[in-house]
Amino acid sequence: MSTATTAPAGIRIKGIYAHLDCLLAGIEQLKSEGIRGFEVLSPLPRHEIIDAVYEGRPSPVRWWTMIGGMTGINVGFLLTSLTAIQWPMINPGGKPVVALPPYAVIMFECTILFGALFTALGAIVHTGLPGWWLDSALKDPRCNDDKFGIVFLRANVQDEARITEVLRASGAVEVTTGDDTIYEVPNA
């Protein structure tokens, strides 16, 4: 989410939540205070969280799927037709050189294949995967387990007090700033 409070060089702030309703309250409170530019961590896809963060904006992955499908149907048509036209004297079964009914099968398969591959590509582009180089504050195994999190990677230093107050007030069980946001697994 882009925002006024995000600065190129800012402070990391992380709030860890044990309860979903507290997390949602935290997101709403931050938004109502005009504070944006945070990422939310969750161990599962909950539509309430996605709706709260993305406010109904659909993922652009759908465009990748559509373009992939359209590319596929055209590739299927061109592959079958152009290769047949190279040998127009061969006419199996008395069918026309460019015969749409049998080629429809290849066109259909190419539509699905290209649609799926473009969707995978779109997902990779928009999710930012591979995410091996994500900021360490986002790499919190607790949020793959039982906890949720709100993370600011570059919050304005002037907003630090306000943000930590909102996180605590909404029910965060742990609020950390700076390097403390990087979670070390005990006994790891």
């Binding site: 969750s42 992955v61 091996w132 180089w133 949020c143």
Partner: peptide, 26 residues
């Protein structure tokens, strides 16, 4: 692939998953 359950990841992942299902169904 560096999955950490960020909402950016989940949002686009779920959309892609739905499209995969829609493409695989036929």
């Amino acid at each position: 692939l560096g999955w950490h359950g960020t909402m950016r990841q989940w949002h686009h992942y779920m959309a892609a998953y739905g499209f995969f299902a829609a493409l695989a169904a036929p």
